[in-house]
Simulated scan of single mutants.
Amino acid sequence: MVFVRHALPGERVTALVTEDNGGGYCRADAVTVHSASPDRVTPSCPLSGPGGCGGCDWQHVRPERQRAIKAGVVEEQLRRIAGVDRSVVVEELPGGVLGWRSRVRLAVDDAGVAGFRAHRSHRVVAATGCPLSVPGMVDGLLGRRWRPGIELDVTVDANEQVHVSELRPGRGSRPTSRRIAGDGVAVQRAAGRDWRVHPHGFWQVHPAAADVLAEAVGSWTRAPRGGTAWDLYGGAGLFASVLAEQVGTGGAVVVVESAPRAVADGERELADLPQVSFVTGRVERVLARGLGGGAPDVVVLDPPRKGAGREVISQIGAARPARVVHVACDPAAFARDVGLLREQGYRLAELRAFDAFPMTHHVECVALFEQADGNGDTATTTPAVSPEE
């Protein structure tokens, strides 16, 4: 099997193999298109093609077709990995397909030139701009000389303040950081609140994504007044703020997050919500110790790209919440978690998908799971398997 980048279904191309590790597949680039798809368009950036910047997979694809392909990927992964047949529509976020990226990491080559990494490579591709980035955010950073070998974290916040930090290789795997621009606090807006968070901590890259996801999650959690909710992989507590309004001051929302910096931001920003508490640690370890405070009525989880996995899903299943709301950014890992939740006696009740990363292959999913009844959706046909299988 050959995975061909920069091609479209139905096209006839000349492909150059770029990676072959001797397994069941290899990777290639479409270097010449002999018969083009009607969905092919001229890329907005000249660096997006073969051998260029690795940040944009699909600038050559009509935006409507991008969303249709992503929907097909989610459907195929659910069917293949979880044994679930589900029709998916990928929803467009406000703002269009360009100028949305509010977070960028620039790399600096051995000559001190800043640019972007090539696809699956450490090679730096020099650039003069980025049409996906929020206009102006990388101006003044590209085209000047930097210390060779560093990286630059660049974030623009809701107040259009640009924050830049220099990352230098450190001992072990942790680089050292030095602030170059900005005051060290980024203002973000979502869920009816202003958030003052670390500029380069976790926050959604698309300016509209945090608010859209918070609304989607809140519409399905329906945490009861006075009830208990868990927000796993909760970051600074975006979803916890929504859950707190639902349970009220007589309820409890417990946020589990492994990044101390995000926990510190969340405890400060949600200090007006005494029903919210934070626990610092890896989710599987925290759940193994026990959260206390009674069983949850609803669980929200927003794991990293690799998904939650069997251990965490089993721990959630043992707690028997009435509803589970899962936020996911990788279709294969999400489909595996769907299958695992089905094994725990939950059915996939609702699903929405969002194009939170236009011009790339990435897609964000939000799903509601409810306890299956006597006619419920249980994993009896296709066992959950690893996304790599």
Rank of each mutant, 00 (worst) to 15 (best):
Pro358Phe: 03
Cys26Phe: 15
Asp109Ile: 11
Asp231Thr: 11
Glu269Val: 01
Met1Tyr: 06
Gly72Ile: 03
Leu291Gln: 01
Leu47Tyr: 07
Gly248Ser: 04
Thr14Cys: 00
Thr18Arg: 14
Asn375Lys: 13
Thr249Trp: 10
Tyr346Glu: 09
Gly290Val: 00
Arg289Val: 00
Thr381His: 10
Val74Ile: 13
Pro46Glu: 06
Gln275Phe: 01
Val17Met: 15
Gly49Asp: 02
Ala216Leu: 14
Arg67Gly: 06
Lys70Trp: 13
Asp57Phe: 02
Val33Thr: 06
Pro331His: 11
Val185His: 09
Ala111His: 05
Gly22Gln: 03
Leu152Glu: 04
Gly55Gln: 01
Ile81Arg: 11
Leu16Arg: 15
Gly201Pro: 10
Gly227Arg: 04
Gly192Cys: 13
Glu364Ile: 01
Asp231Asn: 12
Ala328Gln: 11
Leu243Cys: 07
Ala318His: 09
Arg145Pro: 01
Thr380Asp: 13
Val286Asp: 01
Gly140Asn: 02
Ala328Leu: 08
Pro387Asn: 05
Gln204His: 15
Gly293Cys: 00
Gly143Met: 06
Thr228Cys: 09
Val385Leu: 09
Glu245Ile: 00
Ser133Gln: 05
Val325Tyr: 07
Val212Ile: 13
Gly293Leu: 00
Ala208Met: 04
Gly184Met: 13
Glu245Gln: 12
Val286Trp: 01
Leu93Ile: 03
Gly307Pro: 06
Cys53Gly: 09
Arg117Ile: 04
Gly226Ala: 07
His6Asn: 08
Trp146Arg: 01
Ala335Trp: 04
Gln59Asn: 01
Val283Phe: 08
Pro331Thr: 01
Thr128Gly: 15
Gln371Arg: 11
Cys365Asn: 08
Arg101Leu: 01
Gly227Cys: 09
Thr155Met: 08
Ala209Lys: 00
Val89Thr: 13
Arg196Met: 03
Glu75Met: 14
Glu64Thr: 06
Leu270Gln: 12
Thr128Leu: 07
Asp183Ala: 12
Arg171Ser: 14
Val41Phe: 04
Leu341Asp: 15
Arg65Thr: 09
Ala240Trp: 07
Gly234Leu: 08
Thr155Asn: 14
Ala127Cys: 06
Val299Asp: 03
Leu273Asp: 06
Asp337Trp: 06
Ala356Phe: 11
Asp57Met: 04
Gly10Pro: 08
Leu93Gln: 03
Val33Trp: 05
Arg225Lys: 08
Glu350Gly: 02
Val263Phe: 12
Asp110Ser: 13
Leu273Trp: 12
Arg144Glu: 10
Ala264Ser: 14
Asp153Arg: 15
Val325Ser: 09
Arg189Asn: 02
Glu166Val: 15
Phe202Asp: 12
Ala372Lys: 05
Gly83Pro: 07
Asp109Pro: 09
Asp20Tyr: 02
Gly129Ala: 10
Ser173His: 13
Gly201Asn: 09
Arg222Asn: 12
Arg193Cys: 05
Ala127Met: 05
Arg120Asn: 13
Arg145Gln: 08
